[in-house]
Design a protein around this nucleic acid. Structure first.
Lengths: 203, 203
DNA sequence: CCCATTATAATGAGGT
DNA sequence: ACCTCATTTGCTTCAC
DNA sequence: GTGAAGCAACGGTTCA
DNA sequence: TGAACCGTATAATGGG
């Protein structure tokens, strides 16, 4: 499941990635909250939305865009608050969480770290065999994150994500450690995977 | 209940404010999470802690420090994520949430916007008749936020907080609006209350 | 293959 | 409902 | 009383 | 276990 966190609009996309680099869209949803409501209520609404989807689709992993702040603290904070409840909801269900920066996402789907939104939308549509471009903008991003993670984590490649079992411990720890020990003699895909996991683990 | 949000250490303080400007400490707790754990798990732990306390003490209001970011985005974001789950937990229980800036808090309890930590700790201890200074530093801050809100919201004064009932709508909206309509002819306490609420409502 | 540089967002309000 | 555009912290304190 | 300026924190690691 | 100190973003792109 990919998530594009935001206070006013939070995008969720459930995708089934295939070994052959394509994917199937199982669900898309953009939860909107109006500024008329109390902030706490808005955050709660997002949490509820996330919970519902996680329960309904029980994804193997939750991929979410890392929050970035450049000269707009308030919005970044609000976004972070929203992302907080989402990742907590995942953790409560033993679902591993992976973070990806916007650049990673764009680069993953378009092979160009600085591709405009349209390019991303088009690629997403192609990869998922969508009839048209994803309707709400935030849906596109949610899709993209999901795809990005699928790619980088190696879903459909030689490696698969192992679902987290314990509530107490990060799921990927074991795999990570194993990979880290043999830091040499890996294919490009393996390196990419390791790097991605290592990075994701830092947060 | 006052909250000092943080990822590694999150302080919670339950206080019963008295009409005579003093208060009684009902509970203090600092939830700590180690960086060994997965971030999602850490956030979840904080959420759980908040939930437990909210259920146990059913406070009239949750007062929390507003997150501030200047030259440290990552930290601010983590803090915000933590605060997110806390306020969501409150919202889920229909408990109104109020935000206060660090300056407000310090100024409220020490009459000096830029008082050092010790001064705050001492004042808190005095106000609450504590045997000694609050043990974990974060506890002090949690206490202070609670006291600050009690003061500024007028708990123990002529006005009391009304608990939120609906999940869907901000609790204070009605009160706020009523107060805003008659913006004149109020006592200092009334003005303070109105201002505090108005400010709190913005976020 | 390694190093330096640089680009990066989201909200709220208002109009269509 | 979608899209476009502009904005980008807030409070205490001190000086006047 | 009004207006202008300055300042605010936390996480990770290491040591006692 | 608790206290003090230091740093404060990241990753893709392009060039050496």
């Amino acid at each position: 499941m990919g998530v594009d966190p935001g206070l006013t609009r939070c995008g969720f996309a459930v995708v089934q990635m295939q070994p052959n680099r394509s994917g199937e869209s199982l669900h898309v949803e953009v939860k909107g909250t109006s500024s008329d409501e109390d902030l706490a209520v808005r955050i709660l609404a997002i949490q509820r939305a996330a919970e519902q989807l996680l329960d309904e689709f029980a994804p193997d992993v939750l991929a979410i865009e890392r929050v970035f702040s450049s000269a707009n603290a308030p919005t970044a904070i609000a976004t972070a608050q929203a992302s907080g409840v989402v990742i907590a909801a995942a953790a409560a269900r033993g679902i591993p969480v992976a973070w990806h920066t916007p650049s990673e996402v764009k680069a993953a789907v378009t092979d160009d770290g600085r591709a405009d939104k349209d390019a991303v939308a088009r690629m997403v549509a192609r990869i998922l065999n969508l009839p048209g471009l994803p309707k709400p903008v935030d849906a596109t991003d949610a899709y993209a994150v999901a795809i990005c993670h699928g790619w980088r984590s190696g879903v459909g490649a030689k490696f698969n994500m192992t679902a987290a079992t314990a509530t107490h411990q990060g799921a990927r720890t074991a795999l990570q450690k194993a990979a880290a020990q043999r830091s040499t003699g890996m294919t490009a895909a393996q390196r990419a995977w390791q790097d991605a996991e290592r990075r994701a683990a830092r947060r």
